[in-house]
Design a protein around this nucleic acid. Structure first.
Lengths: 123, 123
DNA sequence: ATATAATATCATTGTATGCTGATATAATGA
DNA sequence: TCATTATATCAGCATACAATGATATTATAT
């Protein structure tokens, strides 16, 4: 909890929104929906993810406003909520194409440290 | 571990890229840099985050290609790596303005479901 | 060399969350 | 009704990771 900036500009909502894009499984679902609506079963087949996993991720994506669901008999058909979802992905892909080199190793914490150059202190 | 789709399309890299946007603290840093380059000290002042926290987040943002750093004497000056970083944010804000209602409660797991004015569950 | 300022890195901790497996709900058909 | 199919939800576990506090590094000045 910070004392400054108590999220008066909706940063938490925005962060939650981007979390929809920040997992490989969810991205694969979004990619599957990029060419049109699909049922959950089709998404499972397209992504290779487990049923409960897909359902959980779809719940998140729906809650975050990235996808919309409609019941169709026994089936649920999902589609992207807006063209801007694809636009954001396209922009990211375009930018990533230019900076991808540096992203491969983005692990932030516990970076492997190729040289092992840690030296001891002589007390 | 999945048997299908071993990330042949760079989903992991893309997800890592979006993780840069998916945390309120990092978003506040990005917002601070949206109006131009700033030193770490300025970012600390603008966001109210702790020094080590800001430094860690900047390390992630740099590793993910969202920001670029330059040394300036004792200071490090950070700036957004590309105009498309701001473009992605602008697109997200525009889309969020239309779907924000449903995002407030996006917690995916353990959703309280207080049965309020949300009409997303039939029956 | 010593001191200080600016920033980075490390270890630890608590929480968030992705995945699985089991179960529950919903819709259809016999 | 019961069975089946399609999807959703839940509990549990294991890992990821944000935040902190301490220490290390880097640059400048005296």
């Amino acid at each position: 909890m910070q004392l400054v900036n108590p999220d008066s500009s909706g940063l938490a909502v925005k962060a939650k929104f981007f979390r929809g894009f920040s997992d490989p499984s969810r991205l694969s679902i979004i990619e599957a929906l990029r060419d049109g609506p699909h049922t959950v079963g089709e998404i499972i087949a397209a992504t290779g993810l487990s049923q409960s996993n897909v359902s959980n991720h779809l719940g998140c994506l729906r809650g975050c406003g990235l996808v919309v669901a409609e019941r169709d008999g026994r089936f649920m058909t999902y589609h992207l909520s807006d063209d801007r979802v694809g636009d954001i992905l396209a922009l990211a892909e375009s930018l990533l194409a230019d900076v991808a080199r540096g992203v491969y190793e983005c692990t932030r914490y516990n970076v492997p440290r190729a040289g092992e150059g840690k030296k001891d202190r002589q007390s």
